[in-house]
Design a protein around this nucleic acid. Structure first.
Length: 463
RNA sequence: GUCCCCAUAGACUAAGGGUUAGGUCACCACCCUUUCAAGGUGGUCGUAGGGGUUCGAAUCCCCUUGGGGACGCCA
């Protein structure tokens, strides 16, 4: 049975990049009819927070990424300690008494010499008597893993193929801290082995950890899983995707009015292809077509324009009733409590104009008084006395007709013709009077929704 | 700096020795049209550079350049 895991650390909200990693794991699991484990990697007591863990759960649920099992590393300490002890007994590790200060010092020296830093193995080489002396003094220590000093470690990556590392490049990693809490590289290996994870799908920023982990697998006699390192997502300037670069927590996308399926489809497209000619698929089809061999090697840039396009596309696929439900909280948030039947009518007109759900607030003139008018528009349509006169004449005559789209259009067209004007010469000022804007859905539809009373009032107010 | 990874238009990608280098977003033009959007039609833009291998290279190899990642008692 295929088993994959998504292993975020709760040191921040679920980031869009993390969501992509989670998604690829989810897609692979579903495609293989396997299971997805969600493992909270909270061994860093300082930075891990419950609220972040909750955010991760909520974000994944919102995206529709369901998991089969959940674990917390903080609840598995005894297991890691047990394995760490085994490693000590089998002679794979040693106690290192170097202090943080000493190590910082060494790092600085290496940096000055422009030499690559690597733990020099001081304590690995310590004579037995020094060791027991330090032990008797009760000095704090960390436990380091004895990396092989020669040879190579080979990673056969499902996405990238064979990657070779010289073991001389690997230093003796710390597997257990001064306080006895095991570290990331050790816990991951123990967990992945014990949880029988068959495929490790994670970001390529983990490639350099992999040879170290492979050595730990070997030392503990665990069977190696398959590895697949997926490319990272970059910001538009090719820098790492960060808050500054505009992409952040999944929950922020929710707040900005993106649909989960749009994000899922978009994320699925970054670094992977599903067809030579199509890009929009329902989730079931994405799952069907997902294959690690179709995952790209090069990093992908996060393009908001395309996300917006997809979001608009998916909004258009929904019914008006569905959109009304989705859009309502955003109106509420803008201080508008919409009447249900009015909202439905507005959604009908705005539906194909929405890229994000938040865009609905552009149409707030349906719900509230118009208090501001586009200044360029005022300049253009309400400065010339002749134009104002025409507008007033129109205003007077339209009061007599039925406020239905068809009638309104027929009347306006014939009015324009009778007065030797083009339709636009009436439409634009009227739109400005009714909406305050130069842009809106079809004017006659807007008028019908607004209703006669409101329209006449607004037409009378502007000049 | 050292190690590792990567390189098809502005962006995401297809083609894995023989294609007029395909699709999507964006962009431009036209159509529709009361504006905007949506939709329709057409178009501009690409194999980073240099060497090899080969009858033939986007595709295989090498170098250069560029980008990214890692180098924590973080994960």
């Amino acid at each position: 049975m295929v088993t994959v895991r998504f292993a975020p650390s709760p040191t921040g909200n679920l980031h869009i990049g993390g969501a992509r990693t989670a998604l690829f794991n989810y897609l692979f699991a579903k495609n293989q009819k396997g299971k997805l484990i969600l493992r909270i990697e909270d061994t860093d007591k300082e930075r891990s927070k419950k609220e972040y863990e909750e955010n991760i759960f909520a974000s994944m649920k919102w995206l529709g990424l369901e998991w089969d099992e959940v674990y917390r590393q903080s609840e598995r300490m005894e297991i890691y300690k047990e394995y760490a002890k085994k490693m000590e007994t089998s002679g794979h590790t040693y106690r290192c008494y170097c202090t943080k200060e000493e190590l910082d010092q060494k790092r600085k020296i290496y940096e000055k010499l422009k030499k690559p830093y690597k733990y020099d193995g001081t304590c690995r080489k310590l004579p037995a008597e020094d060791l027991s002396k330090k032990e008797n003094e009760g000095r704090p220590y960390v436990v380091r893993f004895k990396m092989p000093l020669t040879g190579q470690t080979i990673l056969n990556d499902l996405v990238r193929g064979k990657i070779t590392f010289e073991n001389t490049e690997l230093d003796d990693i710390i597997i257990s801290r001064t306080d006895g809490i095991p570290t990331y590289n050790f816990c991951v290996v123990v967990d992945d082995a014990l949880m029988q994870v068959t495929h490790i799908i994670r970001g390529e920023d983990h490639i350099s950890n992999t040879p170290r982990q492979i050595q730990l697998y070997t030392a503990m006699g665990f069977k190696l899983p398959e590895f697949a390192h997926i490319p990272l997502i970059l910001a538009s300037d090719k820098s790492r995707l960060s808050k500054r670069a505009g992409a952040a927590a999944v929950t922020e996308y929710k707040e900005e009015g993106y649909l989960p399926i749009a994000i899922v489809n978009f994320l699925a497209l970054l670094g992977c292809s599903y067809s030579a000619t199509e890009e929009i698929f329902p989730l079931s089809e994405i799952i069907n077509r997902f294959a690690l061999k179709n995952v790209n090697k090069s990093p992908a840039i996060f393009d908001f324009t395309k996300l917006d396009y997809l979001n608009g596309y998916y909004i258009r696929q929904k019914t008006e009733a569905e959109i009304a439900v989705l859009v309502r909280p955003f109106l509420l948030n803008a201080g508008i409590t919409p009447d249900e039947s009015l909202l439905l009518k507005v959604v009908k007109l705005e539906k194909e104009r929405l890229k994000k759900l938040t865009d609905i607030t552009d149409a707030k003139y349906f719900f509230t008084e118009v208090t501001e008018y586009d200044t360029a528009g005022m300049e253009k349509h309400f400065k010339d006395p002749l134009k104002i006169e025409l507008f007033k004449k129109f205003r007077g005559e339209i009061a007599g007709i039925d406020f239905k789209t068809v009638e309104l259009e027929a009347f306006t067209r014939s009015f324009a013709e009778k007065n030797g004007k083009k339709l636009g010469e009436l439409v634009h000022p009227v739109r400005l009077a009714l909406t305050g804007k130069l842009i809106s859905p079809g004017l006659f539809e807007v008028m019908e929704v607004l209703g006669k009373d409101v329209c006449l009032k607004r037409l009378g107010k502007i000049v």
